[in-house]
Computed example of a mutant assay.
Amino acid sequence: MKVLVATEKPFAKVAVDGIRSEIEAAGYELALLEKYTEKSQLLDAVKDADALIIRSDIIDEEVLNAAGQLKIVVRAGAGYDNVSLEAATAHHVCVMNTPGQNSNAVAELAFGFMVMAVRNFYDGKSGTELKGKKLGIHAYGNVGRNVARIAKGFGMDIYAYDAYCPKEAMEADGVKPVDSPEVLYSTCDIVSLHIPATAETKNSINYDLVNLMPKNGLLVNTARKEVINEADLLRLMNDRADLKYITDIMPVHHDEFADHFPGRYFSTPKKMGAQTAEANINAGIAAARQIVGFLKDGCEKYRVNKK
């Protein structure tokens, strides 16, 4: 069995060493395709691969057509919208993610954003503190739980909305559940977004919803850019000079945000939530273990596509 690690943005060496150890201990061969620049390189490399570990690499119909032996793809990370699930299912390929491995890294970045924003981007002027602020967590999954844990240390008043998470689970963490996004946004000084990009959530963060936020509201996005209705947010920030927006996913209209709202907007040049040594190692080794579990025992615990 051959396991291919295909990463345009490579894992750290220590992560690759850990992946190799897991794969070779199971009796499988490990192959690396790192820093590739052409899709043709990926198409060639997957021809004889039985399993594939990726990061943000695109796995579409063309790649799956080229991968005649492929049985499983594991996305080292929580999001998996870079993999065509429908095409994978049609090719009888199992797709998994590695939930939770990057969660603390993303949560810490969210707080780095919050501190930077309330301190006016470190421009030398007096800012405010996070202590005592009402924090709204939009989606209470692995990242949301880590955000809540860190927020306690800052002394924040924590609220959360998640249609799929039992209120009792939030309350057990000292978090106040609310019944709708509208209540969350109208209540909280800061909202931290952790929703996935789905048909239901795309463009759902719109003018009417964000406009519910109190004066000097801050929206922090470490989730997906597709959930933001950019035209609405541009219009709202023009209408309300008190709002700030910080994102880890550069908007399509980045230049407009940057030009029109200096001191109220910031975007990382590329998605950096999972860009820590620890997350890199954790997600890579988790992906390797999941592949071994699938190939040896048929374990599909983290499968995200249909059979």
Rank of each mutant, 00 (worst) to 15 (best):
K307E: 05
L243R: 04
D255M: 12
D248A: 03
A288W: 12
I285E: 02
D239K: 03
K306V: 10
H254Y: 11
D242M: 04
M272L: 12
V292W: 00
F294R: 09
Y265N: 10
K271M: 15
D297P: 01
I285M: 01
I285W: 01
D248I: 03
C299Y: 13
H253G: 04
C299K: 13
E256N: 12
N305W: 06
L243Q: 04
H253I: 06
K307N: 10
Y265A: 07
D248Y: 06
V252M: 05
T268I: 14
C299T: 13
P251S: 06
M272Q: 15
L243N: 08
A277M: 15
F261D: 07
H260L: 15
Q275Y: 15
M250G: 02
S267R: 01
A241M: 14
E300G: 04
R303D: 01
K306N: 11
K296C: 00
K296V: 04
I281L: 12
E278A: 10
E256P: 02
H254L: 07
K270L: 15
P262Q: 09
K307V: 08
K307Q: 02
V304G: 02
Y302V: 07
A241R: 14
A286I: 00
D297S: 08
I285F: 03
V292S: 01
T247N: 05
V252G: 03
T268Q: 14
D297W: 08
C299F: 14
N305V: 07
F261W: 13
A283W: 00
D239W: 07
I285P: 03
Y245A: 05
G284T: 02
P269T: 13
A279E: 00
T247C: 06
A274C: 03
C299Q: 12
T268N: 15
E300F: 00
Y302F: 11
D259W: 09
G273W: 11
